[in-house]
């Protein structure tokens, strides 16, 4: 069962990467990368169940954190502002 979930999530991440690749606007890519980050958190949880090693949860937490910071940074950049505004 867990393997099926992992295949499904892998498929979903590839769909996200399709949107990252096809665009057409920079905002579409930013959105897709943001969603990809959240999907990867779920993916790490599945790997934790599959392998029984819970350090993958740390990976999930860190990935979620950096995905959030990255999205905010991209948004600020698109607005044309500095990071301290």
């Amino acid at each position: 069962m867990i393997e099926i979930f992992i295949y499904a999530l892998t498929f979903l991440t590839f769909l996200c990467l399709y949107r990252v690749g096809m665009g057409p606007t920079p905002a579409d890519r930013a959105v897709a990368i943001d969603i990809l980050g959240i999907l990867v958190v779920g993916f790490c949880v599945m790997i934790t169940i599959l392998t029984g090693k819970d350090f993958y949860l740390n990976v999930a937490l860190a990935w979620g954190l950096f995905s959030f910071i990255g999205s905010i940074a991209i948004a600020k950049y698109m607005e044309g502002k500095g990071f301290d505004e």
Binding site: D34, L61, G64, I74, A75, M78, E79
Partner: peptide, 27 residues
């Protein structure tokens, strides 16, 4: 730890989405 991650995602994901939406509008 999974619960903590859940709370974090619940807060950060809508915030990031809102920031991106506003940024794309201004872009």
């Amino acid at each position: 730890k999974a619960l903590l991650t859940l709370v974090f995602i619940l807060i950060s994901s809508p915030t990031a989405a809102h920031a991106i939406a506003r940024a794309s509008y201004k872009y």
